[in-house]
Design a protein around this nucleic acid. Structure first.
Lengths: 208, 208
DNA sequence: ATTATCTATAGATCTATAGATAATGC
DNA sequence: ATTATCTATAGATCTATAGATAATGC
């Protein structure tokens, strides 16, 4: 039924995806400015002109790369276990903190790309930049949802801004942990993630 | 006495400094890959060949830029008020947390540059990269010193690793806050800094 | 003689396009 | 006729150097 089921069209979509994935891998390490169409062409195995057949320019290529990596992350991001019983709440909260940290560090490439683009804002061109900022807002919303589900309702009634603030803190601290893991070779990612879970828990309990 | 006091030599040092500062400003926004000698030349007002007279290549230019920005940050970084009295400790700890956050956010350019280079590690060439990693270790040591002075001695005897862990957490969280401030336009830097101070305090108290 | 700057340019790489070629859809 | 890929290349920008020029130091 769909006009896009022929062999030729399918191969076109596959090439498009290969270009997106190649760009994604390079950009997560080198950023927007460091990612050239030549490198993308080399890694994807397609000539540079094929990149321009699938995407209008570097700006739009990046906009699609951002969208694609977000879609993948979003699909793998799990919801928290809601607090069921009043008594076991501290345990569930602690468990959900670990759970959240694990979920974030399971797709580090997406976060690395976001970090690069956030910092390189002057270098990133308009379309890609707009898309990135939209996605960042959606991720924050997703994190706030997590906290709304994970925090005990009474503490939210008392302080309605708490999930939003914790969401921003979660994002900021996760960012910092990825930077540290990157700078130190990645061996200590777990120890820092542990520390993040601790501090999220400490903050959530204190304000909750 | 010094052979470097003549007008000519002094002007040479001034040009060198102008190149370093121009590179620093551009690199904090665009990263290593996005900073071209052409842009440095334009912003500093000196021709590209002058850049290569003062520095062997882009790699060494960046090594010097990193060193210079660290020296400035290090000089402006203040020591904590040590805990004097047993009773007023919580207040002093809280005060020192604010103090630390303020000190870090007073020279954001240094942190921004460090963030860019940490993430772009594949793009940054050997000399600059080695210098950057050294400096990062020194900064961590400086933060650990801060916590050794700021935390009450008994809690340190009980948990000797605490200052080091808090130092790494301080660095990670500061990094995250700069990313957030950058992505969101900078208006909310203060609110996040507040949140960071809160969490440092919560962690320090809990583990202390 | 040394130090610093300038003009000019080599050679590599970058973004992007033109236009030929080949495979599918109708 | 449409979709996708290829070769080839234009024109800009990039890192880096050669070599002339001018100001200081001795």
């Amino acid at each position: 039924m769909s006009p896009k089921t022929g062999r030729r069209s399918r191969q076109g979509l596959e090439s498009r995806l290969r270009i997106i994935e190649a760009t994604f891998e390079i950009a997560a390490e080198l950023g927007y400015a460091g990612t050239s169409i030549g490198k993308v062409s080399e890694r994807s195995g397609l000539p540079a002109s094929s990149v321009y057949w699938h995407f209008a320019n570097k700006d739009e290529l990046f906009a699609e790369v951002i969208q694609h990596s977000f879609d993948e992350w979003n699909a793998s991001f799990a919801d928290p276990v809601p607090p069921a019983d009043q008594r076991e709440q501290p345990d569930i909260l602690r468990q959900n903190c670990r759970h959240l940290v694990a979920s974030i560090s399971s797709s580090p490439e997406f976060w690395r790309l976001g970090l690069m683009l956030a910092l390189e804002c002057q270098a990133v061109e308009p379309t890609a930049r707009r898309r990135f900022l939209e996605i960042r807002r959606v991720v924050l919303e997703r994190l706030a949802d997590f906290w709304r589900a994970a925090l005990p309702p009474p503490s939210q009634r008392q302080n309605p801004e708490l999930p939003g603030r914790l969401a921003r803190f979660t994002m900021a601290t996760s960012d910092g942990i990825f930077v540290a893991a990157q700078a130190e070779g990645g061996g200590d990612l777990e120890a820092l993630a542990e520390l993040l879970a601790d501090s999220l828990e400490a903050l959530a309990c204190r304000h909750g």
